[in-house]
């Protein structure tokens, strides 16, 4: 509810409307993603290898079909179909209240849909799992409002997020080994917070908190990152750095980014999904999306 989306209407060449793939026809089989350079997957650390590996033989790492959610009769998500390919970077845009955050709530187990299916890979039914179990599978999430552990230092934030045995018994005696310290240091470098590791997270700037939160996701060695409005409140320079970071993560991870900032989306997008009233309105490249009359109408109607 924070900001109005800029209207994505370039005076581009007309006649692009038919180029849009018909989406959400209930098939769930999305058209092939815009070419993403196939990055060879690094060998995963041992503790990650131990967790159940999603079956991605059909290409999809996340798969939603016919999902519905109503809050007191108001349909926030309405027959939503979505398929995310393994290693893909997907942008999701849509006006305020389109259901973007709710969609992430469903994937991460925070909200239970009234009907529909949500799968991780071919076989893992996410609707049967609790939040923590879904996180343990390797689905990480950044909240719309940056959420870090204010009282803990930056280092401790990353330590707590780190992929590990997270049961009570183990946490009482857990000690960091050299490899884990190195991993924390590496992530500190990636998110540009080296030298800040002893500061309380509550003392960081807004942009730094956003990065710390992304860093916490990385510590979980996630297969999928769900990133809700990562550049809200960031300076132009911070935004550019964030774009670079997210692009560099794609391939190794599947990344889903929800964002209002169209310039930002354009700078990172391979494939864009437009949500409207809890339903997929259009899907395609940024150019295809911006040329789509349905999209233009929704944004014009909303922004007017």
């Amino acid at each position: 509810m924070s900001q109005q989306p800029p209207i994505p209407v370039p005076a581009g060449p007309l006649g692009g409307s038919s180029a849009l793939p018909a989406v959400a026809a209930g098939l769930g089989e999305a058209p092939p993603a815009a070419p993403v350079p196939a990055v060879p997957r690094e060998p995963l650390p041992a503790d990650v290898r131990d967790r159940p590996v999603p079956d991605v033989s059909h290409g999809a790492i996340l798969y939603l079909e016919g999902v519905n959610v109503a809050f007191d009769g108001f349909k926030a998500i309405n027959d939503l179909d979505l398929s995310i390919d393994d290693g893909e970077l997907r942008c999701i845009i849509g006006p305020n209240g389109a259901g973007k955050t709710t969609m992430m709530d469903i994937i991460t187990g925070k909200t239970r849909p009234d009907s529909g299916q949500v799968y991780f890979g071919q076989t893992v039914n996410l609707l049967e799992l609790r939040e923590a179990q879904i996180a343990q599978l390797g689905i990480g999430r950044k909240f719309q409002k940056p959420t870090v552990f204010q009282g803990h230092s930056v280092f401790e934030n990353l330590e707590l997020a780190m992929q590990a045995d997270k049961r009570v018994r183990r946490s009482l005696f857990a000690q960091l080994d050299a490899g884990q310290r190195a991993r924390i240091d590496e992530v500190l470098g990636i998110i540009g917070l080296r030298g800040h590791e002893r500061r309380p997270a509550g003392a960081l700037s807004h942009g730094q908190k956003q990065w710390l939160e992304i860093g916490m996701l990385l510590m979980q060695n996630p297969r999928v990152l769900l990133v809700d409005e990562p550049v809200a409140g960031m300076t132009e320079q911070e935004t550019a750095q964030t774009a670079e970071l997210l692009v560099s993560l794609a391939g190794k991870h599947s990344v889903i980014v929800v964002e209002h900032d169209m310039a930002f989306v354009r700078s990172i997008a391979r494939k864009v999904t437009v949500l409207h009233e809890g339903h997929v309105l259009a899907e395609g490249t940024m150019d295809q999306i911006q040329a789509n009359p349905k999209v233009v109408e929704v944004y014009l109607g909303e922004g007017a």
């Binding site: 996180a135 959420t147 870090v148 552990f149 009282g151 803990h152």
Partner: peptide, 21 residues
């Protein structure tokens, strides 16, 4: 201990703790 840090984390942002696994 790490257990204690998780407790404080629950105090400050319980949902984040959950989504950390």
């Amino acid at each position: 201990s790490k257990f204690g840090r998780v407790l404080t984390a629950i105090r400050d942002a319980e949902s984040r703790v959950m989504f950390c696994g």
